[in-house]
């Protein structure tokens, strides 16, 4: 559904994305993880047609980004990291503008707006100015807007950043519904838990390079399913083990308190990005 081959983006001497290649399957919920400056947002901006790649190729639903720009735009829905709704327009008007720009007819537009406002639980605020909305409501409206023209691929750039935990969980429910409906989704996130809950596969990026790609469970299994943590010389150290017994055996040789727990994607993420920095 989405194929990226050797995608690069440079700004002068700075390389934001250095030869990214990956393929996302139809109906897959795919996560792009990485620390700040990893190149996730630049990748999404290139896929969103907001930034031209320096080199490499992208094909979405069989259409090449460099050859079928208008077709590609009809294929993708984009939810950027920052709010880019028109605050001086109502929720309905923002969706209406999007529908008009994508050439939706009057009846289709009206029906789709109603449907999406119900889906995002914003129907009661349909005719309020967007500048009066909370951060979570704006984010939901941005998702509704991206879905207006029925895209086949949805690009979500940090959709829950800055939201409080309760609102974030509501957003996850919304995204899980999209996943259940079989939409292909590319999600970038800082929140490892979010990727673990939502994504079928995740790619870890660091300094513009793809360092690992697999399902969350496989990534954890590869690193070691058990983590042993201990504090020494002012630093918390983590070691990975395949079994709890191995971890206990290692803990016996250590002084002071230790913590043994199941590994999660965050441990894998920190381990891989740290390793990368020290290399």
């Amino acid at each position: 559904m989405l194929i990226i081959e050797d995608l690069k983006k440079t700004y002068g001497k700075v390389t934001a994305v250095a030869g990214l290649s990956l393929a996302i399957r139809r109906g897959e919920f795919f996560g792009l993880l990485g620390p700040n400056g990893a190149g996730k947002s630049t990748t999404v901006r290139m896929l969103s047609t907001l930034t031209p790649p320096s080199s490499g190729s992208v094909s979405i639903a069989g259409r090449r980004l460099d050859r079928n720009l208008t077709d590609i735009k009809r294929t993708i829905g984009v939810v950027p990291q920052h709010n880019n709704l028109d605050g001086e327009m109502t929720a309905w008007e923002n969706l209406e503008l999007h529908g008009r720009l994508f050439g939706l007819g009057k009846e289709e537009r009206r029906g789709r707006i109603k449907e999406l406002l119900i889906f995002t639980e914003l129907e009661e605020r349909a005719h309020d100015l967007v500048r009066t909305f909370s951060g979570g409501m704006k984010r939901k409206l941005m998702i509704a807007r991206a879905l207006m023209h029925r895209p086949v691929v949805l690009l979500l750039d940090e959709p829950t950043v800055g939201l409080d935990p309760a609102v974030r969980r509501k957003m996850w429910d919304l995204l899980k519904t999209l996943k259940a409906e079989g939409l292909t989704v590319l999600l970038t996130t800082h929140y490892i838990e979010e990727a673990e809950i939502l994504c079928d596969r995740v790619a870890l990026m660091h300094e513009g390079v793809l360092i690992e790609l697999d399902t969350p469970l496989n990534l954890i299994a590869k690193s070691g399913t058990i983590v042993l943590e201990y504090f020494t010389q002012g630093v918390t150290m983590s070691e990975f083990f395949a079994t709890r017994e191995e971890a206990l055996s290692r803990a016996a040789s250590l002084e002071g308190s230790v913590n043994i727990r199941p590994a999660n994607l965050e441990d894998v993420f920190i381990r891989l990005t740290k390793r990368r920095v020290s290399e």
Partner: peptide, 14 residues
């Protein structure tokens, strides 16, 4: 500032 320009850039509008 408000980035609403992006809405037009991602739409099939020349």
């Amino acid at each position: 500032y408000d980035k609403t320009f992006e809405e037009f850039m991602v739409a099939p509008v020349t």
